[in-house]
Design a protein around this nucleic acid. Structure first.
Ligand SMILES: [Mg+2]
Length: 175
DNA sequence: GCGACAG
DNA sequence: ATCTTGTCGC
């Protein structure tokens, strides 16, 4: 999978277009059921040499955090890592893994941003729209937005709102 | 033109 | 993300 092949010219244009389509279907309101029974976490691992990747989803019982099911799906890497278009790289294998699940989670925690994205369509958002399942974007680094660093305390658990374009798009949490 | 830039 | 090397602490 050649990165330049996409980077050059307008190779990425169609994806930005699709991103705009997805944006129309985003639901920002809290649609979680009154009783959350299962939560899931997803991630993707890579084998650059083999140009293969494997997406995984693990479902746990919400109250006990006991793992009740897991599903994985391996496939060829077909999209480069491009900040802003990250979802097009990791969503495919996760969607496949999700469909093999017998126990569907009420919410999915993702390893990447949700609406804290230039267009409001990060990986978690993209996945949520694609599966029509509530998702939570949980990234380890900033993509967009600003926050009051002076107000973020040194103790673990401290959190302050993340702002992007005048709006709160998430929280910055000290782990 | 120069930095920023999820995983 | 992945790899590799070195150090730290339990
Ligand atoms: Mg990850």
């Amino acid at each position: 999978m050649n990165k330049d092949l996409y980077e050059n010219d307008k190779g990425l244009w169609p994806y930005f277009v699709e991103q705009n389509e997805l944006r129309k279907e985003v639901i920002k309101e809290n649609c979680l059921p009154n009783a959350i029974r299962f939560v899931a976490g997803v991630d993707v691992a890579y084998n650059e040499g083999e140009q293969r990747m494997i997406g995984g989803i693990v479902v746990l019982q919400k109250d006990t955090l006991e793992v009740v099911e897991e599903s994985y799906h391996e496939m060829d890497i077909t999209f480069p890592y491009v900040p802003g278009l990250f979802s097009f790289r990791e969503v495919p294998p996760i969607v496949q893994a999700y469909h093999d699940l017998k126990i569907k989670p009420d919410v999915i925690v993702c390893d990447g941003h949700g609406i804290a994205h230039p267009k409001g369509v990060g990986m978690a958002t993209h996945l949520g729209v694609k599966l029509d399942v509530p998702t939570i974007g949980c990234a380890k680094k900033r993509l967009v937005g600003v926050w009051a660093k002076e107000e973020l305390e040194a103790r673990r658990g401290s959190a302050v709102p993340l702002y992007s374009e005048e709006k709160i798009v998430g929280n910055v949490l000290r782990t």
